[in-house]
Amino acid sequence: MSETGGYILKATDVSKEYGKFKALDSMSFTVPKGSIYGLVGRNGAGKTTMMRIISGLQKPTGGTVEYGFDNKKLGNVGALVELPSIYSNKTARENLVFQYINLGLKIDDSIEKNLEFVGLGDTGKKKAGRFSLGMRQRLGIAMAMCGDPEVLILDEPINGLDPQGIIQIRDLLIHLNKEKGITIIISSHILSELSKLATDFAFVEKGKVVKEIRAIELEEAGGLLTEFYTGTPERLIPVLQSRGLSARYDSGTGIVYAKGYYNLTSIVMAANEAGVNIARVATRETDLETYFVNLVGGESNV
């Protein structure tokens, strides 16, 4: 998975059972160092349970989680699981001061820099309890960032945010990853946002990782899918293939599926020359959501 060969976290056959219910069933994945690693899955697939386990909030009933760094060192793991952990009756700065004491860090002007970095430099004496959800999330991220962690674990960090808040958090995370080199493990229901952010994906279904894929590979695997409705599929398929498209006929639906990008006029003219009658053409672009649905089946409800 990793470009550099190094990993920040490696989960091997991690299981978590609550009585007879298996929340995680031998889940395995590897998070490359320096990546933004997206966990994608339906509700109840096991993403949050996994997040809790890798952030130390829960213990697995089986399997191992290895870290590619000293995870016992204070502040090496930053996490924001579900809700930000902040004192609602304290200001943003006071919250960071507490976090610095918590981590045994020297209280200096890096607190102000951290606040500036997450865009909370001008909150002054405003208590965190009076912050908007986006501000609370950013403060939570600032808290998690204290001590320059090797990895940031974020479970649904954009849940409940307005579009402006989503953009702010997305930019912040990209900024953190690019400028500070922090590896980020993130789960989100909002796949369109995740696709703009993550460099690697793990698709989770029924407590297992069913597929790990890099964003670049996902782009290659996706692309344009076209449905040709024709009465002469045996003549159309060679035409499509001659233009570099992969094509197959589904006898059940009577549709010819072609994958890849093309010039429609050129295809129609070539088909006409080959005596192919095309009744209708429908196209759809395969994105992260479509890929996920195709992978796990059923309707997307992530």
Binding site: G56, L74, G75, A79, S85, Y87, N102
Partner: peptide
């Protein structure tokens, strides 16, 4: 109780304590 509701205990654990 405030530490539970504000998630501070979780924060301490994820910080490595």
């Amino acid at each position: 109780g405030r530490d539970y509701t504000d998630g501070i205990i979780r924060n301490k654990i994820t910080a490595g304590h």
